[in-house]
């Protein structure tokens, strides 16, 4: 199989938007972390700091009615589809103005109206579910595409392999995106995986092209994403893309990530997608003032979302027993 799709070239305006999205994801998650330290954000959270280019690049290549399936590390993918910051932050804080009124939390962000069909916290589970949404699109003939993001660790669970085979035999319009940040939780992925590239090296087993992209280069991500989406819409079946990246922090909020060698962290910090893109845009005609303006407006947005989220009421008992069933209730007997 070869990549035949032509990808539309992004103009400067579109690239400034890619910059804005990445900056928004970065500033949002930094604020989320601060609010955790201040005990406003409870429970656990898994940040995408350093991995923003993947979320931004894919979201830019998606149609508004396409489906996103994310993991517990899903803040970035949710925001990148256009979900406003306030409900996401309020969800992290367990408030009624949260995206799911506080009933899902950080690991389960969902906004059906934005095509964010859930964030799933059982490793690998959402790959088959993304197949289902793609099967539905195929049956209904809508040319929608399901994009399913997961980490390198997911490639060693059975559901990954079931889903890849299933998508391939049914030629489903689904794009599987492995965000390979080199570490499966606290263990180096190559130490517990039979092949060096956990997704790309498995692609041939399902008759798919082996695709690796620099996940810290948003332009490259966009190109590979757009090509895969075009193939999927044309009925050419699934794609499996491995995006190489690095998380700047630990696995979850409880993890300082000390198991990683200092020089490796330094090497990847030097490849931070946001300063890299900032520098590139300056060479492509953007002005420093334009970029600073974007950063400041995002900072104001984060500030406003923080205040709005903090002002949200905590949920009352009325929510507790709601929405187990489609009738809105939870009755299991008469």
């Amino acid at each position: 199989m070869t990549t035949t799709a032509t990808v539309p070239v992004l103009d400067l305006e579109a690239k400034l938007e890619l910059y804005r999205v990445q900056v928004a994801l970065r500033q949002f998650e930094k604020r989320a972390y601060d609010l955790f330290l201040e005990n406003f954000v409870k429970g656990t959270s898994h940040l995408s700091l350093g991995q923003e280019a993947i979320a931004a690049g894919f979201a830019a290549a998606m149609r508004s009615d396409d489906y996103t399936f994310a993991t517990y590390r899903g803040h970035a993918h949710t925001l990148a589809r256009g979900v406003p910051m306030t409900p996401v932050l309020a969800e992290l804080m367990g408030r009624t103005n949260g995206l799911m009124a506080g009933k899902g939390g950080s690991m389960h962000l969902t906004s059906v109206e934005h095509g964010v069909m859930g964030s799933y916290a059982i490793i690998g589970a959402h790959l088959p579910i993304a197949c289902g949404a793609a099967w539905s699109a195929q049956y209904r003939g809508t040319e929608q595409v399901a994009v399913c993001f997961f980490g390198d660790g997911s490639t060693n669970i059975g559901a990954f392999h079931e889903a890849l085979n299933f998508a391939a035999i049914w030629k489903l319009p689904v794009v599987f995106v492995c965000e390979n940040n080199l570490w499966m939780e606290y263990t180096r992925t190559t130490e517990i995986t039979a092949v060096p590239n956990p997704a790309a090296d498995r692609a041939s087993a399902y008759g798919l092209e082996s695709i690796i992209v620099d996940g810290n280069d948003v332009d490259a991500v966009y190109e590979v994403a757009a090509a895969a989406m075009t193939r999927a819409r044309a009925g050419e079946g699934p794609s499996l893309i491995e995006a190489l990246t690095y998380r700047h922090g630990g696995h979850s909020r409880a993890d300082p990530g000390k198991y990683r060698p200092d020089e490796e962290v330094a090497e990847w910090l030097a490849k931070d997608p946001i300063p890299m893109y900032h520098a590139r845009l300056l060479t492509e005609g953007a002005t420093e003032a334009q970029l600073v303006e974007i950063e400041l407006s995002v900072a104001a947005e984060v500030e406003k979302a923080t205040e709005e989220a903090k002002a949200g009421p905590t949920p009352g008992a009325d929510l507790l027993m709601k929405d187990v069933w489609a009738d809105g209730g939870s009755a299991w007997r008469n």
Binding site: P128, C131, G132, W135, Y139, A163
Partner: peptide
Amino acid sequence: GAAMGAAMTGL
């Protein structure tokens, strides 16, 4: 998983 994804999207 396919059944779930299909059900959440209208089938």
